[in-house]
Amino acid sequence: MGDSLLTSLNDLPIRDDLRGREPYGAPQLDVPYALNTNENPYPPSAALVNAIGEAVKGVAGSLNRYPDRDAVKLREDLAAFLNRDTPGAGLTGRDVWAANGSNEIIQQILQAFGGFGRTALGFEPSYSMHPIITSVSGTAWINAHRDADFGLDPERAIKAVEEHRPDVVFLTSPNNPTGTALPLEAIEAVLKVAPGMVVVDEAYAEFRRAGTPSALTLLPGNPRLIVTRTMSKAFAMAGTRLGYLAADPAVIDALLLVRLPYHLSAVTQAVARTAITFGDELLDSVNALRRERDDVVAWLRAEGLEVAESDANFVLFGRFADRRGVWERMLDRGVLIREVGPPEWLRVSVGTPEEMAAFRTALKEASKEVGEAGPGGVGGRPPSGERESL
């Protein structure tokens, strides 16, 4: 195309508020141990692979036709799963909506309830896509910050909502990147004062520890509450791209106004419905990952590191004077983790026992190499009585 070729993004007439931004994305590197994107490390069983193949074959002959625009049967199946996950939820397909990953769910919520002249509020550190999708939708983002221990004091949350009067409030439980679950009291407190919609992002809910309730129990009588989930994590279906939510049917009516037509392919719907029928098998891996998570938390603390309480399939740990150095030297050893969240902290996704053994070895070696080793272990935590506060 010669000299007429545009050579820079700045040469294009993009929106001014997009200039200078960087695309979202964790590193996708070919390494022996990828522990940076919170995927379920256990692939589908041979039986599930065969069942998915048959399901796709079953719809392949009709791919010349559009799929079920509203994914009615899939939504019914998802409602049935949520009722098993949270007994007493009493959900039907009319209370559930599905989309192309939980990010599209978030986008649709903001398209319906946010927009120019409106605001969304969250408590960071939290899922980094919340402010990104918020701003791209033309909604103003307000960061009200989490507590020092990554929790959320209900009274402080109330004050933030009353001060800013946001149109949308995001509460993430378990929180990403910290793994922290919110007590229902904190969610209820926000619901009582929020003037708009309250979105509880439960992408990692299936990994929560025993006795940790879901916000699904709060749906009755709270028509402005939305609880979002995903099949990417517990269901080990990250490649399927299927996110969903539970809410009052009126919320789904609002989302129908903004959703793209035929946004879920027939193949996606068939694969997701098949995976749900294998739910018990898939959730067995969740139990294994919970045990592995608790083991790695105990090991990290024994090595002298600070660790955030986790109800997810990942662990945030620190603190490092040179976290980039630790991250790079672990990568040199074939172990990819995530440099994300608060400064001085790193996050590891929970993998198989073999992967976690490699993580332990790489972390100890990398920490010593960059001079992070100290009296408390690999992280060099100060002796008792001298530990810094978060």
Rank of each mutant, 00 (worst) to 15 (best):
R291G: 14
R291F: 12
R291S: 15
E292K: 00
E292Y: 00
E292D: 11
E292S: 10
R293Q: 01
R293V: 08
R293H: 03
D294G: 12
D294T: 13
D295S: 15
D295Y: 14
V296C: 10
V296D: 02
V297Y: 10
A298G: 13
A298E: 08
A298R: 14
W299F: 12
W299V: 03
W299C: 12
W299P: 13
L300E: 06
L300V: 05
L300A: 10
R301Y: 08
R301E: 15
R301T: 11
A302R: 15
E303L: 04
E303F: 04
G304Y: 01
G304S: 05
L305M: 15
L305N: 09
L305Y: 10
L305F: 13
E306I: 06
E306G: 07
V307P: 00
A308L: 05
A308S: 12
A308R: 05
E309R: 07
E309V: 10
S310C: 06
S310E: 09
D311H: 14
D311E: 11
D311M: 07
D311L: 07
A312V: 04
A312P: 04
N313F: 02
N313L: 02
F314Y: 13
F314D: 02
V315G: 01
V315S: 04
V315P: 06
L316Q: 13
L316Y: 09
L316V: 04
F317H: 12
F317Q: 08
G318P: 08
G318Y: 00
G318H: 02
R319D: 10
R319K: 14
R319Q: 12
F320I: 11
A321C: 07
A321F: 11
D322T: 05
D322V: 11
D322L: 10
R323W: 10
R323A: 14
R324L: 03
R324D: 04
R324S: 03
R324Y: 00
G325L: 07
G325E: 02
V326S: 03
W327K: 03
W327D: 02
W327S: 03
E328R: 08
E328K: 11
E328T: 11
E328S: 08
